[in-house]
Design a protein around this nucleic acid. Structure first.
Lengths: 301, 301
DNA sequence: CACCGTCATAGACGGTGTCTATGCATCACG
DNA sequence: CGTGATGCATAGACACCGTCTATGACGGTG
């Protein structure tokens, strides 16, 4: 039995197919067939039931899979720690980012990150909070940028910066004349994102949950939402970093009376060995965002 | 990196010496030296500080050792679990059984199965033929006991025993006086099971499909059917193993002139890897039913 | 009926883990 | 300060095994 074999098992279990799994492992399909057969003989256990088109893990395989994943994860940890010992700030770094943050934050921080951490190959991965947490726990991400509060005892997090919310209005809207908009006033015709976006819940919470009735329309993306508001379908509440995009869409932005906002945090697994890399990435992002935070404190972004 | 290499690391860490560690691993000392050096080069980390007499793990090695132990422990767990799973006559065995067979067969074969295959945890699953075939193909059953003929090329089956049908009559019925009942005579007032039961189709086929018009009432279960017949609503045709239950309900049973009956088969997926378990289960059931088959040949069950 | 996708099998090749033989460094000791 | 003992490193030979390409068997599909 070999670590390589274990990775083969995981690949087949994931792809449900020998050929795809072989491709994913970078070997030929016959090689994979032979290796799995040898492994099955060595273990004395049939791992997969081959039936024409489909390859289904046997119950025996299911009972082994946990340990297989464990062994592979530990092996990966060894490699990661070794790399970290050579140079903590080098290697691939998979960073999850929520969709209401990624398009506005990444352009800001990508260059500074490359400059400060040239050896760190940052791979952004954009998805909603729950999906990111899942991938994080599955060791498919090294860290994630989230706007939610706590994530369980197996994860750790650190606040990077505060992002105030802004009222986004069509120019002709009755509230556009005010210098500051009260959150409760927004609630009457607020448009929110689709389920799963943390911004949706936060926007509704800031406005006292009222907007729910008024808006059956729930946009899948923030940019769609901005265009909907620009077309006069209602108002919305946007994160500060999206101010530029909102202005480009022709919207009027106003600070909120109660200064509602969200806190962007970087989150990682509690046992993650490359803490230095997480810290460094967090530092760079927080440093890049500091001028914006001061601007927000002054009431304009 | 290799699981073998990881065991080498642990051996050296334990013995504090290459030669002893090599001996413990069953390899020569030069081999161990070479392998560790290669591993150190691959990881880019010096693992042991060789100082003349003493071999001391580096700090880097200390930080890796936990993961190394973890990986080796998981690998050992895989081997241990596989050893447990090696016996095909052990573990869960999900056996589908049709409703017109289960209540009468299970009490007969459950004890013999436990006696002959003590490590096999048989989980009966009672449902109609089509549902069982679906679950079988979906890998949610290991095998099924059916009374139908063929099931497609992706499945295989083996006959276990023949089960003759019997005419079941109320004692006061006009046919009750006959020693043998002709199938066609039953057709006039036969009651049958609801759609989906294979016994329904087989009973109608045996009687020439005639009974369909006479009986708008279609029972959902065989025991309901027996009670309906006992109450004088008609006659019916029951599988031999239900004879006891029918007599308990106060019915008169008569053999059929054309000796209609059904064949109980055990069916499994063509590619199912635990053939030995299927064979063993089939053998035990067939052996238990052999005395009944002789009794049926003599005309009474 | 031919074609495509899938897994299994066969034979050839190259890498690598293993061995034995030997060299080198360190340490104990007379 | 030699000398032997002990322990790790190096070198070359060999065998195994993981890999490849080519091909076969099987099932589904146009």
């Amino acid at each position: 039995m070999n670590l390589r074999d274990l990775r083969y098992i995981l690949a087949i279990a994931e792809h449900g197919q020998f050929s795809r799994a072989a491709e994913a492992c970078g070997i030929s399909q016959p090689t994979l067939s032979v290796q799995i057969r040898k492994l099955e003989e060595a273990l004395g256990v049939t791992l997969f039931e081959r039936g024409g088109k489909s390859v289904v893990p046997t119950e025996a395989c299911d009972r082994l899979l946990g340990h297989v994943r464990g062994a592979v994860a530990e092996a990966d940890a060894i490699l990661a720690v070794a790399r970290d010992l050579r140079d903590p700030l080098a290697g691939r770094f998979r960073l999850g980012i929520i969709p209401t943050l990624a398009p506005y934050l990444l352009p800001l921080v990508f260059a500074p990150l490359r400059a400060a951490l040239p050896a760190l190959e940052i791979e952004p991965w954009e998805d909603q909070t729950l999906a990111l947490l899942e991938r994080l726990r599955a060791h498919q991400l090294d860290a994630a940028l989230l706007a939610t509060e706590e994530d369980g005892p197996d994860l750790a997090g650190e606040a990077l910066f505060e992002e105030p919310f802004l009222a986004a209005l069509p120019p002709e809207h009755r509230l556009a004349g005010q210098a500051v908009v009260d959150e409760a006033d927004l609630a009457q015709d607020i448009l929110v994102l689709a389920d799963g976006h943390c911004l949706r819940d936060q926007a509704l919470a800031a406005c006292g949950q009222a907007g729910l009735l008024g808006s059956t329309l729930r946009s899948a993306s923030l940019s769609t939402l901005l265009n909907m508001v620009a077309a006069g379908y209602g108002t919305t509440l946007i994160p500060g970093l999206a101010a530029g995009a909102a202005q480009d869409a022709g919207l009027v932005l106003r600070p909120l009376a109660a200064r509602a906002g969200r806190c962007i945090r970087i989150v990682w697994r509690a046992g993650y060995p490359r803490r230095a890399a997480v810290e460094a990435v967090g530092q760079v992002i927080a440093a890049r965002l500091r001028p914006f935070a001061q601007g927000a404190a002054a009431g304009a972004v």
